[in-house]
Design a protein around this nucleic acid. Sequence first.
RNA 1: GGAGAGGUGGCCGAGCGGUCGAAGGCGCUGGACUGGAAUUCCAGUAAUAUCCAAAAGGUAUUCGUGGGUUCGAAUCCCACCCUCUCCGCCA
Length: 429
Amino acid sequence: MLDLRLLRSEPVQLARNLARRGYRLDLDRLTELDRRRKEQQIGVDTLRNERNTRSRAIGQAKAQGQDLAPLLAEVATLGARLAAGEQALAKLQAALDALLLDLPNLLHDSVPDGQDESANKEIRRHGEPRRFDFEAADHVAIGERLGGLDLAAAGRISGARFAVISGPLASLHRALAQFMLDLHVREHGYREAYVPLLVSRQTLTGTGQLPKFEQDLFKLARAEADSELFLIPTAEVPLTNLAGDRILEPPELPLKFVAHTACFRSEAGSYGKDTRGLIRQHQFDKVELVQVVRPAESYAALEELTGHAARVLELLDLPYRVVALCAGDIGFSSARTYDLEVWLPGQGKYREISSCSNCEAFQARRMQARWRNPESGKPEPVHTLNGSGVAVGRALVAVLENHQQADGTVIVPAVLRPYLGGIERLTPP
RNA sequence: GGAGAGGUGGCCGAGCGGUCGAAGGCGCUGGACUGGAAUUCCAGUAAUAUCCAAAAGGUAUUCGUGGGUUCGAAUCCCACCCUCUCCGCCA
């Protein structure tokens, strides 16, 4: 959520910034709504003040045994007028909230211009894509040759965009997740968290998935009551919301959480995209990093967090590049995002395996995540960051494809071997 | 699922329907005392919106959430949510 004060003080800059994303801000409507809400608020406050004053007078009169009738007559119409005013205010407030919750975050100045991913800016590369002296297979072929990747079975059980992984491949998948968790906990200073996978509408509103992107989520309806829960699309949602509705004391910051969870996305609107293999699934595992920091430190934290994710790829000996997302490609809640793209020999392309974002105060304002700024002594929004560290399914794909051998085996990266009983190589049966 | 108890400020804990944003205590902050500290004493100590150029201050809202009764609700009524205890079931 954007700061309304910014709208009042610098409306034009704000609209121009949003326009870089391709978002057309109806400034007149927003300004008018804000003005009317304020006006109505003042009106209602005045009426309430009158009611309170008169009620107090009635109380005193009663205590002194005076006749209440004339006093009661004076307030006869007050209730109705107040109720009408309150109703109008609620309506205006709801309209304003709806508009505000729909606005994406402001972009950081450093975000490159552009409409889609073709305009993303490469920041750096690490590692050389390996040269194969045989035809590199993609992960589906490798997985089936090794045994243990069964997309057909998943289709029978659940439908498209699910996978069954079994045997050593499943162990490798698990080893990847555990390696990442251990790395971030032991070397990068994150606190491991186990969190709910089902969350409320309010929680998803806090991080910005709702109200705008409901079609991307899986929702569970419960028959009794009108309660609803959503499957999380990323652990960013529960982890970031840990700071919601709190006023953190300075020594508590930064909060650094890591969690390994399943993630669920309906992938609405992605028909025909990445239909083969594990790249785009309704359910996938991810190790997620979240930081809650002092505003002045959030851009340093973004570099740090991105480095933590990159470290995973480096230790797995996977070539990757870092790209800064352009204005048109960056996510709704983010002010600046780096994607890590891993080299996939099976596709001959770099593909996203992590996305690291600084949301600045955008999510914090939505979820009331604050800290007490010692300089002002007042509660102010914190800055929140998140990044995959990294997507486990895609990491599995990358390991299989990058470390495949001519004989159909796959070399297990050294850092994973302790998690796999020391085996160095996956071998077809 | 059944039976019961309860949700009040950072925490504990009072609160006859009428200056209650809320006693008291703890914690925290500042001051006095001290060579320094402890003790003790004094004072201060919520958030949000809004008015004011800003500060000071004023006004409004907030006692789990939403609705209702009333001139007036932390206090009465209804619904829901959550926590705890016991029983049942279960990993």
